[in-house]
Design a protein around this nucleic acid. Structure first.
Lengths: 209, 209
DNA sequence: ACCCGTTATGACTAACCAGTCAGTAACAAC
DNA sequence: GTTGTTACTGACTGGTTAGTCATAACGGGT
């Protein structure tokens, strides 16, 4: 509307900046890790100067927080919607969720982001807490509820719901670490979707009544 | 034999140094993380000067490598011994191994070390590779073999052994991350042994034929 | 044509820390 | 004692980089 000027380097496009900067940051964080990424790099890839980045984000950490909020927020909302809308036996839903998660790990930067949070949470506890509150604190109760539903309906035997929910997520975390830590240094690639399917199969048989 | 002088600060004790330095390093790495630990800190806690540390270890990385070799080497050897000596049905052995691992996570710095390897493997790929070769590369085949044994004897159904072995370890990795990443920033503590037991129960029922 | 607020930048600073090196203290041998 | 060797240290260097600031370009409004 307002600004139809050329897309050349030096033009100013205030509204587009934050998105561009976050895009650049996400790419670089995923490629090189958080601490190895210099603010100059982010700026360069976003097409402005380092000082320019600081017009839109207070901190290097603010970049990471924004990325976590963005990705986490979206995913949790989707998951909550699916879970709450679902009727009938929960087993297929659990399998679906695990498959969906596997797809997310393959096709988005979700895995890399989780790995960064794990690596940086000692140096940046607020980021860790943000993830703990907005992803784990939302997601785990959702899964616990699902398992409780299954127990109540007689579909599952009486396992400990918090433990079971964590056991359900464990292998997905392993997939994250495998992909982001060990594949880059030479481990043979893991077929995440196949793995998730096999895990769902074992897990569901394991809690079936 | 040779050196019976006083144990005062400035005396020289060449034989004891490496152990003392590694001990200090392990404590500090576990407390503050690898990059946040300064060589001066390690030196101070070990009771000598920073330059002194460099008489015994080439690098900061060399400290980490030595720690990984030490802890990993020991654990894998034990596991291999137990697995190879075992006769009869493998289910109880798998439960035992998971319980043993849970104990190790609670009572040693194993979890912290794993977390550090995960965090630092981008900046120090040789450490990552060392762990990949000496722990994962040794441990996983061991568990895969166990599962194959169970399948062959009719104890387990025909699951994919590599996937199943990873599904078996996934929740233990989650315990590592929970303890070292989220508990320090305020997550409620996880009863690792209870969790491991519940997981073993689910997992074994899940692969039973 | 000229403002003037907004958007942008180059150049700088301040802090941090792994790793080095020239030199010192302790001990052993004689 | 004196000398040679080993164990050790204080003080320094060099490289790195997040965040700042004074100054410049832009462009819409009049």
């Amino acid at each position: 509307m307002t600004n139809q000027s050329v897309t050349t380097g030096k033009t100013r496009r205030p509204e587009a900046r934050p998105t561009e900067i976050l895009g650049a940051a996400l790419e670089l964080f995923a490629e090189k890790g958080f601490s190895a990424t210099r603010m100059d790099d982010v700026a360069a890839r976003a097409g402005l100067s380092k000082a320019g980045v600081y017009l839109y984000f207070r901190d290097k950490t603010a970049l990471l927080k924004a990325l976590v909020e963005e990705m986490a927020g979206a995913n949790v909302a989707v998951a909550r919607g699916i879970v709450e809308a679902h009727q009938g036996p929960v087993s297929p839903l659990i399998a679906t969720i695990l498959g969906f998660l596997a797809g997310q790990l393959r096709h988005t930067r979700f895995a890399e982001l989780v790995k960064i949070i794990i690596s940086e949470s000692r140096a940046h506890p607020d980021v860790g807490r943000l993830y703990l509150d907005s992803v784990i604190g939302q997601g785990l109760p959702l899964f616990e509820g699902l398992i409780r539903r299954g127990i109540a309906s007689g579909e599952f035997r009486a396992v400990d719901a918090p433990f079971a929910a964590r056991a359900m997520m464990g292998p997905m975390l392993l997939a994250v670490i495998w992909k982001t830590v060990f594949e880059p240094i030479g481990a043979e690639p893991l077929d995440i979707e196949g793995f998730a399917a096999q895990h769902a199969d074992i897990f569901l048989k394991g809690i079936q009544s």
